[in-house]
Each structure stands twice: as structure tokens, then as C-alpha cells.
Write a protein that binds this DNA or RNA. Structure first.
Length: 485
RNA sequence: GGCGCGUUCGUCUAGGGGUCCAGGACGCCGGCCUCUCACGCCGGUAACACGGGUUCGAAUCCCGUACGCGCUACCA
């Protein structure tokens, strides 16, 4: 039975600052945001930094930055899980005092040995079947002797039913229900204790997380009950896989949001693509903005089977945004990639800047990403271009071409109106006078203006470049042909 | 080993007993457009994991098998 969700909701996204924001995590964040935005309520961001050794401030910043880049917004936090350690510990003491947890003096090695033994005998292993809790007196005595101990939570034997938004009711029988450590012998709380405590503390109503936590959920529910708290509504998302439904890793291309950012993808595209990995609006829309997704999102439509991450489809979605977003938005996202190709926007005067923007607008439909777009923009701002003799080999061999291009320069130079139409008329008349097909002039001209054999329709290119820059490049190109003939 | 989850074109998915000889999208192939390359447009390719049931009728419900993934930590 799927549970219908009603708002307002209090949801959370708790990344560990131990690395980059994985696409799976990014998608979890997106669904939580979509749920919160569509139903009202709050999304709280919590940094799970209890594993101090592997966490640091830079990593946390990295994750926040990736979240902001992709366009996920949150209402509360980021709060640090590490700030609640005393609270977590006192909850463990409380459970101990209420007899819902006990002191565990068994050495980890002894447990591991037993586990291995059972594993070899192909038997199910449960801690509580082999290591009975110490009596109160024994525990007291051993504590006084200074023996190290962990705190273990008592799991009942009653089956626990998880009512999951995406999977319906999932029952866990007693084979899986085992006493679990909530406080390590060094006094630090374990994950299961901390999530439950923090979700209670933040009054979380809905926990939407990865499927890897589904089997952990009965433990969490037991903890809620032991603390006399109502468990949240759960929803476990299928995992994002690599090719062949194997675990997704860097080997399959990018696996983190940061990498896509560096590759020059638009965040709108990643957001859109990720939202569709495991969810669909039910109609035939594929390209939906964050706002449209918020309007259409319902948790009931979340899928339950694992999806393979497909960089090719992401590339297509990206291309849709490259051509569909307002120019100003493209320009904004393009800015960080400009220094790489030697463009300093602040140093450009107004006319060059206008030329640059016209060029970006003209090339955006054929650039796969922002890196490519940036390089396409170079000829619009640079005074002189460097031509490649190999690429131009064909033009170098055409002796008549130089003279024809000079004719063209003359014609272009005398044009009063510089438009797609006027330049085309001028070029065709030069071609006609020289008794060659227009293509004979069009291709070298494209090369002269863009250093490339392929590109936009030539007259669009010429119009965007403007008269002055077009003539200048053409002049340089003829000189280049002469010098290398 | 135990337990849990999953399985529709290569990939993302629609579908939830008859309207499905299974629809859309990416990819791939072909065509149109054309000064090139893209975009766009048109067409094609290709799937209900397997086996049993239930039913007049199953992609849809039930059981089993296979495969994949997850959990089974003093990791999170």
C-alpha cells in the first residue's frame, strides 16, 4: 500500500562531508526539495560529520557549493551533527537506565570470530543468540574494574513493518532483528542512534533517502518506539547505477555534481535529468524546469527500480537547456569558463562585448557544453586569429582564391548596411563575377572568421561578427594564405 | 549463508486485468532542410527476465527460479 503524503512536511538532507556530492545524493536532495516545495514545510540540511577524521570544513563547503550550484534550496541549517554528541550520549544513557540497552563488554574480535564461524557453517548470525547481556551486578563490577564497554540496544523479536512511500509495506522478521551498538567503547554514538536522535530533534516528518537504508529502517523504528516517539514516514529511493546495473563509479565518467560542473554542464540540465531518474510526470514531458517540477511532483509517482545513469541522455538534456535558456542565463554560467580561453570580459569595450554576446547566442545551439561555447566565442573578441595550415591546406592550394577574397573584402568594405541579407548578396555577386560557386568563397570565409570548417550559417556568422571584425579577420586570412602559399 | 528490494526496447520511462500485435524520450540507422556542422522536422530500429498458476482474458494479480542491488560493522 502506498501512502499518500500530505503537507506540510519537514524533510531533511544529511550529506556526510567525506567527499563530493554524488549524483545519487544530489538526486535525493532534489526529491526532498521537490516534496518540500510542492507541499510546503521545511527542508533541513544536516552535515553528518561525526566521522571527524574523514570530515573537514573544506569538504562541507564543497557540498554546500555543489548543492547551491545545482539549484537546491533549503530552509534550515546546515546544522552539524557533531554538535549533538552530548545529546546523543544522554539518549543512550536514558535507554540504559530504562533497561532498553545494556553494557556490552564483549571484545569486538570475539564477535567477529563468532560471526566468521557461523558464516562458514552457512548459518545466520545474530549477536543476541551468542552473547547474552551481563547481569546488572556483573556490569557494575566490570565497569568499576575499568573494563571497556559499548552500549548495545535491545531489539525485540516482534517483526517490524516499514510502511514505505515507494515500496508499500515491507516486513522484517526476527532473523534480521539483532541488538545493535549505539555507543562505541570510546563513547561516541553510532550512526543509527544519531540519525534517529537528530530526526526527532528536528521534528522530521518524512525521511526520503536511498534504498541502502531500507534494511536499516527497522532498527530506526525500534529506536523511535523505545524513545516513545512516532517514527516518520519513510520513502526509500532506488539507487542510481552504472552500466550493467553495477555500482556507479568514476570509471563510468563523472559521478559527482562537481565533475559535471567542471565539464561545463548547466545545473538546470543536471537537475532536470536527475529528477527524471526514478520519477516522471506521467505525461510526455521531458524537459521541465525546477519550477515546473515543483508544480508536477508527487511522491506517489516515484519509481521503485534502480536506474542506470546515462551520460548521453544528460548531454541531450543539457543541449536543450543550452539553446532554450535565456541568453543572460547562459552568459552568467559561461563566465567562469572564459578565463580558460583567455577572455577577460571586464577588459572588453562595449562593441566587442556586444559582438561576443551575439557570437555566444549564435553558437549555443551547437555547443555541447560551456567549455566548447567559450572556445567558440574566442574569434569574436580576439584581434587576430591563428590559422592552422593543415586545416587550411585546401584553401592554400587554390591560387585564385586570394584574389577572390580580396574582391570580397572590397565588396564587404563598401557595404553600408551590414546584415545577413546584404552580405549574402555581396558575396554571391563576387562569386558570380569570379565564375565560381558561392561555396568556394563561403568555406574559406568561415575559416577566416572562426578558424573552423564547420559552424553556423556563414551569413549569420558574418552578421554577428560585424563589419569591422569580419574585414579584419578576412584581411589577416588572405595574408596568411599568401605567406604560406 | 540469512534477510530485504528490484526486473517493460541498449538506456530513462508510460502503463496497475481487456482500449497494448505495448506509448514517449535518449541512442543508433535513413531521409528532409542546407554553404559546412549542429539544431529542427519526418521515418525506421528495438522491450513486458524465465517458468508455473489465477482468470473468459495478464505487461498488469499469486507462487517459484534466475539475475542485479542492498543490509547483515564498535562505517555512514
Amino acid at each position: 500500500m502506498k501512502t499518500k503524503i500530505e503537507g506540510p512536511v519537514r524533510v531533511r538532507f544529511p550529506p556526510s562531508p567525506t567527499g563530493f556530492l554524488h549524483v545519487g545524493g544530489a538526486r535525493t536532495a532534489i526529491y526532498n526539495e521537490l516534496l518540500r516545495q510542492s507541499l510546503g514545510g521545511s527542508l533541513v540540511l544536516r552535515i553528518e560529520d561525526t566521522d571527524r577524521a574523514r570530515s573537514d570544513q573544506a569538504m562541507t563547503e564543497q557540498i554546500l557549493s555543489a548543492l547551491r550550484w545545482i539549484g537546491v534550496t533549503w530552509d534550515e541549517g546546515p546544522t552539524l551533527q557533531s554538535a549533538g554528541v552530548d545529546r546523543h550520549r544522554s539518549v543512550a544513557w536514558r535507554l540504559l537506565a530504562e533497561g532498553k540497552a545494556y553494557h556490552d563488554f564483549v571484545a569486538p574480535e570475539a564477535v567477529a570470530a563468532k560471526r566468521d564461524e557461523m558464516q562458514k557453517a552457512k548459518q545466520n548470525f545474530r549477536y543476541k543468540d551468542h552473547f547474552p547481556p551481563p547481569s546488572a551486578d556483573e556490569a557494575k563490577e566490570r565497569m568499576e574494574r575499568g573494563e571497556p564497554f559499548a552500549v548495545r540496544f535491545v531489539m525485540g523479536d516482534e517483526p517490524i513493518v516499514v510502511s514505505d512511500i515507494v515500496r508499500g509495506e515491507v516486513t522484517f522478521g526476527d532473523e534480521m532483528l539483532d541488538d545493535l551498538i549505539i555507543l562505541r567503547s570510546d563513547g561516541t554514538p553510532t550512526y543509527h542512534l544519531t540519525v534517529v536522535c537528530d530526526d526527532i530533534e528536528a521534528r522530521i516528518s518524512h525521511v526520503i533517502r536511498g534504498e541502502d537504508h531500507l534494511s536499516n529502517t527497522p532498527k530506526h523504528i525500534a529506536l523511535y518506539r523505545a524513545l516513545d516517539e512516532e517514527p516518520p514516514v519513510y520513502g526509500h529511493l532506488p539507487l542510481i547505477m552504472g552500466p550493467g546495473k553495477k555500482r556507479l563509479s568514476k570509471r563510468h565518467g563523472a559521478a559527482s555534481a562537481e565533475e559535471f560542473r567542471e565539464q561545463g554542464l548547466l545545473p538546470q540540465a543536471l537537475y532536470n535529468y536527475l529528477a527524471f531518474l526514478g520519477w516522471s510526470p506521467g505525461d510526455e514531458r521531458e524537459i521541465m524546469s525546477r519550477e515546473e517540477l515543483i508544480g508536477a511532483f508527487t511522491a506517489e509517482r516515484l519509481g521503485s527500480s534502480a536506474a542506470v545513469f546515462d551520460p548521453e541522455k544528460l548531454a541531450w538534456v543539457n543541449a536543450q537547456y543550452m539553446s532554450g535558456l535565456p541568453l543572460a542565463t547562459i552568459l552568467e554560467h559561461l563566465a567562469p569558463f572564459l578565463p580558460e580561453v583567455g577572455i577577460d570580459l571586464s577588459a572588453l569595450d562595449e562593441s566587442v562585448r556586444a559582438r561576443f554576446e551575439a557570437g555566444v547566442d549564435l553558437h549555443r545551439t551547437r555547443a555541447k557544453n560551456l567549455i566548447e561555447l567559450a572556445s567558440f566565442a574566442v574569434p569574436y573578441v580576439r584581434d587576430r586569429l591563428d590559422y592552422d595550415a593543415d586545416l587550411c591546406a585546401k584553401f592554400l592550394k587554390q591560387e585564385a582564391l586570394r584574389g577572390q577574397l580580396e574582391q570580397l573584402i572590397e565588396q564587404f568594405g563598401s557595404l553600408e548596411a551590414w546584415t545577413v541579407e546584404s552580405t549574402e548578396v555581396a558575396m554571391r555577386s563576387v562569386a558570380e563575377a569570379a565564375e565560381v560557386k558561392a561555396g568556394v568563397l563561403i568555406h574559406p570565409t568561415r575559416m577566416a572568421l572562426s578558424c573552423s570548417k564547420a559552424g553556423p550559417s556563414l551569413f549569420d556568422l558574418v552578421a554577428a561578427m560585424g563589419q569591422e571584425a569580419s574585414l579584419r579577420h578576412l584581411g589577416h586570412f588572405v595574408a596568411f594564405l599568401r605567406a604560406n602559399a
